[in-house]
Simulated assay, not measured.
Amino acid sequence: MNQSSTPDDKTGKVRLSGQLICTSLDEVDIVQKYLPEHIRLTRSEPGCLSFDVRQTEDPMIWDVEERFTDRLAFEAHQIRTKGSAWGAATSAIRREYEISADS
């Protein structure tokens, strides 16, 4: 995952935006299979303000937009995601994300 420098501030909203980039139809199938539950679980996390993943006009690319109340909520999301079925199934799919914080 390509990320810009991660905010050190523990306060302020955290935003992740970027793309999930599939390189095969098999990867697209994996995203379509696991994404609905990943979205449901993420939106129910404490501190999640918004979480949207949308397929672009290019069916191999998905736009990702996440917002969390603060750095701690964002970090908790990252930990949960890595240990989830989504995390395991999509770990090889390329991600290009930028992370920023609002004061």
Rank of each mutant, 00 (worst) to 15 (best):
S103Y: 10
I21F: 07
I39T: 06
T69M: 09
R15C: 12
R94C: 09
Q55W: 07
M60E: 07
T42C: 02
L20K: 01
T23M: 12
D29K: 14
R80K: 11
A88V: 11
S91Q: 15
P36D: 05
D9K: 08
E57F: 10
L16P: 02
T6D: 02
E98C: 10
G18F: 08
L35I: 14
T90F: 10
L41V: 07
S4T: 12
H77W: 07
R15S: 13
T56E: 10
T81C: 02
L16M: 15
D102H: 13
L20P: 01
C48S: 15
S44E: 12
K82V: 05
R54K: 12
D70H: 13
R15H: 13
M1L: 03
R40G: 07
D26N: 00
D63V: 02
G83K: 09
L72D: 11
S50W: 10
A88C: 10
G83H: 06
S103C: 12
S91G: 09
I61M: 09
I30V: 15
E66H: 05
D26A: 03
G87L: 06
D52T: 09
A85I: 12
K33I: 06
P46I: 11
A76D: 13
M1S: 08
A85C: 06
E37T: 12
L35M: 14
R67E: 15
Q32V: 02
K13N: 02
A101G: 00
S50N: 01
G83C: 03
P7Q: 12
I21D: 06
R80V: 00
H38Q: 04
Q78K: 14
P36V: 05
T69S: 15
D9E: 05
D29S: 15
I99F: 01
P7N: 01
Y97G: 01
E98M: 11
Q19I: 08
L25T: 09
E66A: 01
Q19N: 11
R67M: 15
N2R: 10
R67C: 15
I39R: 00
R95F: 01
A76G: 09
F68N: 01
M60N: 04
A85K: 13
V28H: 04
C48W: 14
T11I: 05
A101Q: 06
L35T: 08
F51C: 02
C48H: 15
S84R: 12
D26V: 02
V14R: 04
E65V: 13
L16Q: 02
W62F: 15
Q78W: 00
P7W: 13
A92G: 09
T90P: 08
A89W: 10
R94T: 13
S91I: 14
V64Q: 07
E96H: 03
G18D: 08
G47T: 01
R54G: 12
L72P: 01
T90C: 14
A101K: 03
A76F: 11
L16Y: 01
R94G: 11
C22R: 05
S84K: 11
F74W: 15
T69L: 15
Y97W: 08
W86P: 02
R95P: 00
E98K: 09
G83E: 05
S4L: 10
D8M: 12
C48D: 11
W62I: 03
K13F: 14
I21S: 07
G18I: 04
S91K: 15
Q78I: 03
G83D: 11
V53N: 00
